[in-house]
Design a protein around this nucleic acid. Structure first.
Length: 487
RNA sequence: GGCCCCGUCGUCUAGCGGCCUAGGACGCCGCCCUCUCAAGGCGGUAACGCCGGUUCAAAUCCGGUCGGGGCUACCA
């Protein structure tokens, strides 16, 4: 049987990196098994759901390169894949469930439920629903409903009983039904809850494996029982295997949240991370290709991924390692690719489009910048000196470098040598400057810094000779003049 | 509180009863290279939470304990 997995986020927030990892594992499993990856939108929460979030989820998955075979936007045999468009189907299934005696109307009001919950908690009893409306005779229930009394529909958990299942990553997990309450499947508003919509869809869509976060582990007996009842009521079969992924934690070991920094995938995308690096890093949080490899291509992952190998212990999201890995992927980019991915950032920083000559200048210096960047967003600052009329001096760089005794002789010597030089390329510049410093008895490391600050405004820059070459003679000399005049 | 899950260097992990004086990667420290910063090379730091048990032998199996996490809604 072909594997059919689904990723079913709720559009109640920007795509979270933990969720992105869940999506990735689903995708990896589908691709590794030659299965089908389905993207569904679990948007039954009308209060919190927003189109902006829905779009963000799609953008995020596409950015990561996690293509789906069926689902929202792309359609498929079970369309629509948006739960908010399947409301009638859910009500129909609920009706069948009530008729089959698997679910019942609950006339308790929210206020009553809240009050009883408080009391139960104080008395040390389970706070879940006590099941009192389950005792109402079907005929009475129907007539009360017919009389217009508001009711929600609850699923009748078989009692007594126990649900035992074999979770792919956790092994055998068991829940006594005494600890599972009769949960609401249809709100009194007529809108289904997540549990119902998700279970109906999993049956309707022929899902074979549910791979999701551990936060849903304790809801699993509900889903197994509900799913079974749905399949029975509908006269179909459904056999779903569950795999619960551990959660992503923050540096303090608590569930990853806002206070740990950025948790939305978009923040990383905007922060200069490459999707390839993100995918590689996320995949390794809870899974290993075995052996000593850390940098693993997407194709290699697909080849080696096995949901059975996924680790059950939670992983802490470590931005530093992600950053290192991003650097690895950036260095691995082709020169042209690096330029095309960063040019927009450089232009945005400059506040204008670069003309052809400037683009050529950028392309020349880019490989040297590429070697020393971990985040695409760091690039503009490194080449800004090429695209501004006047460099702004970094205050601490100036104080540190320009107050040294070698600053004046170095700048003046450079001016003298570079004005006389016959060609303007980095080799010529290098020869001229090195011999100048040699004659003055100034160490290269010391002597080049004032020139660097004069030309780039910073004590940190791409290699100096190349920088000077790309800057052009006129601008280079002008900057040396300006700086020398400020000493 | 109740139910459930988890436990190898600071972090991600390899390990699936003897190959382990526990391997790799990030980080950190030192050295080398070097025009700055990176990158790179070399070396170093650092872990099987604890207690019992099973076994000739345990990081690997079992129990307990401690610690961490999740759930406990007419949210998902």
């Amino acid at each position: 049987m072909t594997v059919r997995v689904r990723f079913a986020p709720s559009p109640t927030g920007y795509l979270h990196i933990g969720n992105a990892r869940t999506g990735l594992y689903n995708w990896l499993m589908a691709r590794a098994e030659g299965g089908v990856f389905i993207l569904r939108s679990d948007d039954t929460d009308q209060e919190r759901g927003r189109d902006e979030y829905y779009d963000d989820i799609i953008d995020g998955l596409r950015w990561l390169g996690l293509d789906w075979d069926e689902g929202i936007e792309v359609g498929g045999p079970h369309a629509p894949y948006k739960q908010s468009q399947r409301l009638d189907r859910y009500r129909e299934v609920v009706t069948a469930l009530v008729e089959a005696g698997a679910a019942y109307r609950c006339f308790c009001t929210p206020a009553e439920l809240e009050e009883r919950r408080q009391v139960a908690q104080q008395e040390g009893r389970p706070p879940g629903y006590d099941g009192r409306c389950r005792a109402i005779a079907p005929a009475d229930s129907a007539s009360r409903a017919g009389g217009g009394e508001a009711a929600s529909i609850r699923f009748a958990i078989p009692r007594p009983g126990e649900t035992v299942f074999d979770d792919v990553v956790r092994g055998e997990v068991r829940f006594e039904h005494a600890n599972v309450d009769d949960f609401v499947i249809l709100r009194s508003s007529g809108v289904p809850t997540y549990h119902l919509a998700s279970s109906v869809d999993d049956v309707d869509f022929g899902i074979t494996h549910v791979v999701r976060g551990e936060d849903l582990l304790s809801s699993t007996p509900k889903h197994i029982l509900l799913g079974g009842a749905i399949a029975d009521a509908l006269g179909v079969t459904s056999d779903i295997t569950y795999a619960h992924l551990s959660l992503l934690m923050g540096p303090d070991g608590k569930k990853l949240s806002k206070r740990h920094g950025d948790t939305s995938l978009r923040a990383y995308r905007e922060g200069g991370y490459l999707p390839e690096a993100m995918v590689n890093y996320l995949a390794l949080l809870g899974w290993s290709p075995g052996g000593d490899e850390t940098v693993v291509s997407r194709a290699e992952m697909v080849k080696r991924f096995d949901i059975d190998d996924v680790l059950k212990n939670p992983a802490i999201f470590d931005v530093e390692k992600l950053e290192w890995m991003n650097g690895v992927y950036i260095r691995d980019l082709g020169a042209d690719e690096f330029v095309s991915r960063t040019l927009p950032l450089v232009e945005a920083d400059a506040g204008r489009a670069l003309d052809d000559a400037e683009q050529a200048a950028y392309a020349t210096i880019a490989p040297l910048v590429q070697e020393r960047t971990k985040l695409l967003t760091e690039v503009p600052a490194q080449v800004r000196f090429l695209f501004v009329d006047e460099v702004g001096y970094d205050e601490s760089a100036w104080d540190k470098v320009m107050t040294k005794p070698e600053a004046r002789p170095s700048l003046e010597g450079a001016l003298e040598q570079l004005e006389a030089v016959s060609a303007w390329d980095h080799a010529t510049i290098e020869t001229a400057l090195r011999s100048m410093l040699d004659e003055l008895g100034i160490k290269v490391g010391k002597g080049l810094q004032p020139i660097r600050v004069a030309v780039t405004g910073s004590s940190v820059s791409p290699p100096l000779f190349e920088s000077l070459a790309v800057l052009g003679r006129d601008r280079a000399l002008a900057r040396l003049h300006t700086a020398a005049g400020l000493l």
